[in-house]
Computed example of a mutant assay.
Amino acid sequence: MQIMTNISILFIIYLINNLYAELVIKPSESIVLRDQFKSFVASCTGLPNTRVATWRSPLQIDIKEDDTARVTVERQTYGLRLRIRNLTRSDQGIWECLGSDLAGRPLIRTLQINVKVPITFLGEPIQYAELNSAVLIKCRVLANPSAEVSWFKGRDKTHLVSSNYERSNDGLKINRVSLADNDLLWCQADVLETGESKDYPIQVIIARMLL
Protein backbone atom coordinates (compact mmCIF):
# COMPACT_ATOMS: atom_id res chain seq x y z
CA MET A 1 0.00 0.00 0.00
CA GLN A 2 2.86 2.35 0.88
CA ILE A 3 4.49 1.59 -2.48
CA MET A 4 1.29 2.49 -4.34
CA THR A 5 1.03 5.74 -2.38
CA ASN A 6 4.61 6.66 -3.27
CA ILE A 7 3.98 5.87 -6.93
CA SER A 8 0.86 8.06 -6.89
CA ILE A 9 2.80 10.95 -5.35
CA LEU A 10 5.57 10.60 -7.92
CA PHE A 11 3.00 10.52 -10.72
CA ILE A 12 1.36 13.71 -9.43
CA ILE A 13 4.76 15.40 -9.24
CA TYR A 14 5.43 14.29 -12.81
CA LEU A 15 2.14 15.81 -13.97
CA ILE A 16 2.90 19.09 -12.22
CA ASN A 17 6.42 19.29 -13.61
CA ASN A 18 5.55 18.33 -17.17
CA LEU A 19 1.90 18.57 -18.16
CA TYR A 20 1.31 21.81 -16.27
CA ALA A 21 4.50 23.56 -17.28
CA GLU A 22 3.49 26.71 -19.10
CA LEU A 23 4.23 30.38 -19.63
CA VAL A 24 1.79 33.15 -18.79
CA ILE A 25 1.77 36.56 -20.49
CA LYS A 26 0.17 39.70 -19.12
CA PRO A 27 -1.69 41.61 -20.54
CA SER A 28 -3.78 38.47 -20.94
CA GLU A 29 -5.31 39.50 -24.29
CA SER A 30 -3.69 37.83 -27.30
CA ILE A 31 -3.89 41.13 -29.22
CA VAL A 32 -3.40 44.55 -27.63
CA LEU A 33 -3.80 48.01 -29.16
CA ARG A 34 -1.61 50.78 -27.76
CA ASP A 35 -0.96 54.41 -28.71
CA GLN A 36 2.12 55.41 -30.68
CA PHE A 37 4.87 57.19 -28.69
CA LYS A 38 3.59 55.79 -25.37
CA SER A 39 5.38 53.32 -23.11
CA PHE A 40 4.35 49.67 -22.98
CA VAL A 41 5.13 46.87 -20.55
CA ALA A 42 4.30 43.15 -20.59
CA SER A 43 5.34 40.29 -18.33
CA CYS A 44 6.03 36.66 -19.11
CA THR A 45 6.14 34.36 -16.11
CA GLY A 46 6.28 30.65 -15.48
CA LEU A 47 5.75 28.24 -12.63
CA PRO A 48 8.69 27.11 -10.46
CA ASN A 49 9.10 24.18 -12.87
CA THR A 50 9.56 26.42 -15.91
CA ARG A 51 12.28 28.76 -17.09
CA VAL A 52 11.65 31.95 -19.05
CA ALA A 53 14.55 32.49 -21.43
CA THR A 54 13.86 35.56 -23.56
CA TRP A 55 11.45 37.88 -25.33
CA ARG A 56 11.77 37.85 -29.12
CA SER A 57 10.69 40.74 -31.34
CA PRO A 58 8.60 40.49 -34.55
CA LEU A 59 11.94 40.76 -36.40
CA GLN A 60 13.11 37.61 -34.57
CA ILE A 61 15.61 39.51 -32.42
CA ASP A 62 16.17 38.33 -28.84
CA ILE A 63 15.85 41.33 -26.52
CA LYS A 64 18.77 41.95 -24.16
CA GLU A 65 18.78 43.43 -20.66
CA ASP A 66 19.86 47.05 -21.11
CA ASP A 67 18.50 49.83 -18.89
CA THR A 68 19.44 52.48 -21.46
CA ALA A 69 17.78 50.81 -24.47
CA ARG A 70 14.39 51.82 -25.83
CA VAL A 71 13.38 48.14 -25.85
CA THR A 72 14.66 46.03 -22.98
CA VAL A 73 13.82 43.15 -20.65
CA GLU A 74 13.96 43.03 -16.86
CA ARG A 75 14.54 39.78 -15.00
CA GLN A 76 11.85 38.97 -12.41
CA THR A 77 11.56 36.13 -9.87
CA TYR A 78 9.80 33.72 -12.22
CA GLY A 79 10.07 35.46 -15.55
CA LEU A 80 10.94 38.43 -17.73
CA ARG A 81 9.30 41.81 -18.10
CA LEU A 82 9.33 43.38 -21.56
CA ARG A 83 9.57 47.17 -21.52
CA ILE A 84 9.21 49.34 -24.62
CA ARG A 85 9.77 53.04 -24.22
CA ASN A 86 8.18 55.21 -26.91
CA LEU A 87 6.23 52.74 -29.08
CA THR A 88 6.71 53.09 -32.84
CA ARG A 89 5.20 51.37 -35.87
CA SER A 90 8.31 49.18 -36.05
CA ASP A 91 7.21 47.53 -32.77
CA GLN A 92 3.97 46.29 -34.29
CA GLY A 93 3.67 42.55 -34.77
CA ILE A 94 3.86 39.27 -32.87
CA TRP A 95 6.20 39.14 -29.87
CA GLU A 96 7.28 35.77 -28.51
CA CYS A 97 8.14 34.73 -24.98
CA LEU A 98 10.40 31.68 -25.05
CA GLY A 99 11.18 29.28 -22.24
CA SER A 100 11.47 25.61 -21.32
CA ASP A 101 10.30 23.07 -18.76
CA LEU A 102 12.47 20.98 -16.44
CA ALA A 103 13.05 18.40 -19.18
CA GLY A 104 14.32 21.08 -21.55
CA ARG A 105 11.26 21.01 -23.79
CA PRO A 106 10.64 24.41 -25.38
CA LEU A 107 7.69 26.56 -24.35
CA ILE A 108 6.34 29.57 -26.20
CA ARG A 109 3.63 32.18 -25.75
CA THR A 110 2.85 35.01 -28.14
CA LEU A 111 1.49 38.52 -27.85
CA GLN A 112 0.49 40.66 -30.82
CA ILE A 113 1.03 44.38 -30.39
CA ASN A 114 -0.84 46.74 -32.70
CA VAL A 115 0.41 50.32 -32.54
CA LYS A 116 -2.33 52.93 -32.82
CA VAL A 117 -1.40 55.94 -34.93
CA PRO A 118 -3.91 58.81 -34.55
CA ILE A 119 -5.46 60.31 -37.67
CA THR A 120 -3.06 62.79 -39.27
CA PHE A 121 -3.77 64.86 -42.39
CA LEU A 122 -1.04 65.84 -44.84
CA GLY A 123 -2.17 68.69 -47.07
CA GLU A 124 -2.32 72.48 -47.25
CA PRO A 125 -5.45 74.19 -45.86
CA ILE A 126 -5.58 76.49 -48.92
CA GLN A 127 -5.05 75.02 -52.39
CA TYR A 128 -5.34 76.57 -55.84
CA ALA A 129 -6.98 75.08 -58.92
CA GLU A 130 -6.88 76.34 -62.49
CA LEU A 131 -10.24 76.81 -64.20
CA ASN A 132 -11.17 74.11 -66.78
CA SER A 133 -8.15 71.98 -65.85
CA ALA A 134 -7.70 68.70 -63.98
CA VAL A 135 -6.25 69.08 -60.50
CA LEU A 136 -5.47 66.98 -57.44
CA ILE A 137 -6.57 68.46 -54.12
CA LYS A 138 -3.96 66.94 -51.83
CA CYS A 139 -5.00 65.33 -48.57
CA ARG A 140 -3.10 62.23 -47.51
CA VAL A 141 -4.35 60.48 -44.37
CA LEU A 142 -2.05 58.61 -41.98
CA ALA A 143 -3.65 56.31 -39.41
CA ASN A 144 -3.29 52.87 -37.89
CA PRO A 145 -5.64 51.03 -38.00
CA SER A 146 -6.26 52.40 -41.47
CA ALA A 147 -8.93 55.03 -42.02
CA GLU A 148 -11.79 55.25 -44.49
CA VAL A 149 -11.66 58.60 -46.29
CA SER A 150 -14.70 60.52 -47.54
CA TRP A 151 -15.04 63.93 -49.18
CA PHE A 152 -17.66 66.62 -48.62
CA LYS A 153 -18.23 70.11 -50.01
CA GLY A 154 -19.47 73.42 -48.64
CA ARG A 155 -20.32 74.68 -45.18
CA ASP A 156 -23.19 72.20 -44.98
CA LYS A 157 -20.85 69.31 -45.89
CA THR A 158 -22.65 67.92 -48.92
CA HIS A 159 -21.37 64.49 -49.95
CA LEU A 160 -19.52 64.50 -53.29
CA VAL A 161 -21.19 62.03 -55.67
CA SER A 162 -20.42 63.55 -59.09
CA SER A 163 -18.26 61.59 -61.54
CA ASN A 164 -16.21 64.77 -61.89
CA TYR A 165 -14.53 63.85 -58.60
CA GLU A 166 -12.29 60.83 -58.05
CA ARG A 167 -10.78 59.80 -54.73
CA SER A 168 -7.19 58.59 -54.52
CA ASN A 169 -4.71 57.78 -51.75
CA ASP A 170 -3.19 61.23 -52.15
CA GLY A 171 -6.40 63.26 -52.21
CA LEU A 172 -9.31 64.20 -54.46
CA LYS A 173 -8.96 64.58 -58.21
CA ILE A 174 -11.21 67.12 -59.93
CA ASN A 175 -11.36 66.07 -63.57
CA ARG A 176 -12.51 69.47 -64.82
CA VAL A 177 -12.43 72.48 -62.52
CA SER A 178 -15.41 74.84 -62.67
CA LEU A 179 -16.32 78.01 -60.79
CA ALA A 180 -18.52 75.89 -58.53
CA ASP A 181 -15.35 74.31 -57.14
CA ASN A 182 -14.36 77.63 -55.59
CA ASP A 183 -15.58 76.34 -52.26
CA LEU A 184 -14.67 74.60 -49.03
CA LEU A 185 -13.84 70.89 -49.25
CA TRP A 186 -13.76 68.52 -46.29
CA CYS A 187 -11.40 65.55 -46.14
CA GLN A 188 -12.94 63.20 -43.56
CA ALA A 189 -11.27 60.13 -42.03
CA ASP A 190 -13.01 57.40 -40.00
CA VAL A 191 -11.29 54.54 -38.17
CA LEU A 192 -14.03 52.01 -37.53
CA GLU A 193 -11.93 49.78 -35.24
CA THR A 194 -11.40 52.56 -32.69
CA GLY A 195 -14.29 54.92 -33.41
CA GLU A 196 -11.93 57.82 -34.13
CA SER A 197 -13.22 60.36 -36.67
CA LYS A 198 -11.71 63.65 -37.85
CA ASP A 199 -12.20 66.01 -40.76
CA TYR A 200 -9.88 68.53 -42.35
CA PRO A 201 -11.12 71.66 -44.18
CA ILE A 202 -9.44 72.70 -47.43
CA GLN A 203 -10.33 75.98 -49.11
CA VAL A 204 -10.13 75.69 -52.90
CA ILE A 205 -9.43 78.93 -54.74
CA ILE A 206 -10.00 79.06 -58.50
CA ALA A 207 -7.29 80.71 -60.56
CA ARG A 208 -7.99 81.76 -64.14
CA MET A 209 -5.38 80.89 -66.75
CA LEU A 210 -3.54 83.97 -67.99
CA LEU A 211 -3.44 84.38 -71.77
Results as ranks from 00 to 15, higher is better:
85 R>Q: 09
134 A>D: 10
88 T>V: 09
166 E>P: 01
124 E>S: 11
44 C>Q: 00
56 R>N: 01
64 K>S: 08
72 T>L: 02
67 D>N: 11
182 N>D: 15
116 K>T: 05
207 A>W: 14
65 E>S: 12
139 C>G: 10
163 S>D: 12
108 I>H: 02
127 Q>L: 08
167 R>C: 06
174 I>Y: 09
163 S>F: 08
189 A>L: 05
208 R>P: 07
26 K>C: 05
89 R>N: 12
66 D>W: 01
159 H>F: 09
83 R>G: 02
102 L>V: 08
33 L>Q: 06
67 D>M: 08
1 M>L: 13
181 D>G: 10
143 A>P: 01
80 L>Q: 05
39 S>V: 04
118 P>K: 07
73 V>L: 01
199 D>M: 10
4 M>F: 14
42 A>M: 03
37 F>A: 13
6 N>K: 14
164 N>E: 13
192 L>N: 07
169 N>F: 10
8 S>I: 14
183 D>A: 10
6 N>L: 15
77 T>R: 14
138 K>E: 14
189 A>Y: 06
2 Q>L: 13
191 V>Y: 02
35 D>S: 13
75 R>L: 12
37 F>R: 15
53 A>V: 13
199 D>E: 15
141 V>T: 00
176 R>P: 09
164 N>C: 10
209 M>E: 15
211 L>Q: 10
152 F>N: 08
96 E>A: 01
147 A>T: 03
110 T>C: 00
15 L>K: 04
3 I>P: 08
156 D>R: 11
70 R>N: 06
30 S>V: 05
91 D>I: 01
89 R>A: 13
119 I>V: 08
100 S>N: 06
29 E>C: 03
120 T>C: 10
175 N>Q: 13
183 D>F: 04
80 L>C: 04
141 V>E: 04
64 K>W: 05
53 A>M: 11
15 L>V: 07
124 E>A: 14
171 G>S: 08
31 I>N: 03
52 V>N: 02
27 P>T: 01
39 S>G: 13
134 A>S: 15
169 N>K: 08
184 L>V: 15
191 V>S: 03
127 Q>A: 09
147 A>M: 02
175 N>A: 08
195 G>C: 02
152 F>Q: 10
173 K>Y: 13
182 N>W: 06
103 A>E: 10
41 V>E: 13
164 N>P: 10
122 L>V: 12
185 L>Y: 15
100 S>A: 04
170 D>R: 11
37 F>S: 15
50 T>S: 06
112 Q>S: 04
17 N>Q: 07
206 I>N: 07
81 R>H: 06
10 L>H: 06
16 I>Q: 07
